[in-house]
Design a protein around this nucleic acid. Structure first.
Lengths: 128, 128
DNA sequence: CCAAACCATGGACCATGGTCTATTGTTTTG
DNA sequence: CAAAACAATAGACCATGGTCCATGGTTTGG
């Protein structure tokens, strides 16, 4: 009954809140994109997620939507939590950010192409 | 010996000029992204491509790089050459263009997130 | 002429990202 | 308590996009 009052949640709740399937969440966890606290004190081995994980998952989700691979997202999230080597972390993030900016330009090119094509199509339409 | 003087080329030349492998080109053709003129007058069944195909292929290539699926690219290229129903063509192109613009915004969000993360990482770095 | 280079086709193979299923164990709730 | 709902795991399965391979035909150049 203790419900939604923060602290932790099981995978079902996280699934609902994130809009991702349980399977997908487990997949992401297996790939190190998020992590759960396996409660050693309990009889079961259910995953328990903190609220933070929901935020991470939102990031993962939008990153995936945008085409960033799971491997790359792992690199990034590792960078975020890389208390070990912050300058290395910085490199990773900067690199990915730059890559994405390049990608934006590429998409803009395609958009321009499409918009140009649109004009041509409309010219043809004008002949009616 | 008649070489590069326009008109047509075989898959090897197209491969070189486009930077795509023969296999990939055949895959794209099988999926209707480009088309070759199968010369019926000849004894072989080699594919022959016009210069135009090179341009199409460049578009396909950049569209793929940007994550547009083969199926969607086919829809688009069909739209380009849809002498049949130009207004339908227009719809397809407009829709895809809008989708890409949305995608740009999504990527920009991710970039903003990364840049914000970067600041935090750098703060941590300042503590040295 | 003959070997090397090219082409075609079909199918196998691979990675990625995700879903689905079966089995089994746990919790919740009427 | 017992059934329903939830969870775990492993492995099968699927689609996509591409590469690689085997086989066999064609062209080309020395």
């Amino acid at each position: 009954m203790v419900h939604g009052l923060g602290v932790v949640m099981k995978i079902g709740e996280l699934s609902e809140k994130s809009g991702l399937s349980r399977d997908t969440i487990r997949l992401y966890e297996k790939n190190g994109l998020i992590s759960s606290s396996a409660s050693q004190s309990e009889t079961n081995n259910y995953r328990h997620y903190s609220e933070d994980v929901l935020l991470q998952l939102r990031f993962v989700s939008s990153a995936r939507k945008v085409g960033i691979s799971i491997a790359d997202i792992r690199e990034l999230t590792e960078a975020f939590f890389a208390s070990c080597d912050p300058s290395e972390a910085e490199n990773v993030i900067v690199a990915k950010s730059a890559e994405l900016k390049t990608r934006i330009e590429e998409i803009e090119n395609v958009v321009r192409f499409l918009d140009a094509a649109l004009l041509k199509v409309r010219e043809g339409l004008g002949d009616d």
